[in-house]
């Protein structure tokens, strides 16, 4: 396994796709900072400068990194098939399991490296402009753990596709399509998963100007069972979790925080299942 990793890292050093993705990550980070800066200037007269802009920026990349991992893994692993070099590894006496796992490790490490590059760029430029991170250390640690787990899930999925489907074009297109499908699934399931049985509807203002909300039954509430199914699917969907982390978890309450602590377990299960099936299928795959 060490030999395979060593060979992959040697190849990575001169890999143009990897270099391109590193540059793209830096560009994305700078673009995010500039975009937030312009937003802050635009709305500062109304809302004032947002105090948690650095927090927001740190989490945003997780929505994009899936695409980058999909591109890297499909092309890096796919090239093994298109160049035929996967044969060199097998003939040199490496087991298919080790080839699968070494590619997975490389994909994960590249994902984490890109995330790290993003975080470093954000830290360098965002902290002097927008100030320090506002969330406490434990929240930050849990979110970073979630981010790493999401990266591993993405890598597991795309490594699976790249090694089982030996055509580089098909695996790249399939991986990118899959992310889009996961986004669509999240869009479809999210309203149901997050809906409540009762909602605040009508705003009532008394003579003294006090505002109260009328709580009414939510007619669109699908029922407990359907909601549980939707929530479970969302919990296993890395895109859903990425959106949750990057979107509405800046002001995390206790329940959100507890949920965040549980997500890595869902991901761990997913990673184990995908990798086990992947190794099994790759093992019986007839290579040419």
């Amino acid at each position: 396994m060490y030999k395979l990793l060593n060979a992959s890292f040697y190849r990575l050093r001169k890999n143009k796709i990897f270099l391109g993705l590193v540059i793209l990550t830096i560009i994305i980070a700078v673009f995010m900072i500039v975009s937030e800066y312009l937003n802050n200037i635009k709305y500062s007269s109304v809302f004032g400068i947002s105090s948690n802009t650095t927090d927001i920026l740190l989490m945003k990349f997780i929505n994009i990194i899936g695409f980058l991992i999909a591109i890297f893994t499909s092309l890096f692993v796919g090239a093994e098939y298109s160049d035929g070099t996967i044969r060199n590894k097998i003939v040199a006496g490496h087991s298919k399991k080790n080839i699968y796992l070494s590619n997975l490790i490389v994909s994960i490490l590249v994902g984490i490296f890109l995330e790290l590059i993003y975080l470093i760029v954000i830290s360098i430029f965002s902290i002097p402009i927008f100030g320090l991170v506002q969330m406490n250390f434990s929240q930050l640690a849990v979110i970073l753990l979630d981010i790493i787990m999401i990266i591993i899930v993405y890598s597991s999925i795309f490594n699976f596709i790249a090694l089982i489907c030996s055509n580089i074009t098909i695996s790249t297109v399939s991986s990118l399509l899959l992310i889009l499908i996961m986004f669509v699934i999240d869009m479809l399931l999210s309203p149901t998963a997050n809906s409540t049985e009762y909602i605040q509807k009508n705003i009532v203002m008394d003579e003294k100007g006090n505002v109260t909300y009328e709580v009414v039954k939510n007619e669109d509430y699908p029922g407990k069972l359907v909601q549980t199914i939707c929530k479970t699917i969302s919990n296993f969907n890395p895109v859903s979790q990425a959106i949750e982390i990057s979107g509405n978890k800046i002001n995390m309450n206790e329940e959100d925080f507890n949920n965040m602590k549980v997500y890595p377990l869902y991901f761990l299960g997913l990673i184990i299942i995908i990798t086990a099936i992947g190794i099994y299928l790759f093992n019986i795959k007839e290579l040419k």
Binding site: D83, G84, T85, I86, R87, I90, V91, K288
Partner: peptide, 13 residues
């Protein structure tokens, strides 16, 4: 297999 080398169909380069 570590003591053998092979080119199958096309050179893998």
């Amino acid at each position: 297999r570590k003591r053998m080398g092979a080119i199958v169909e096309l050179p893998a380069i």
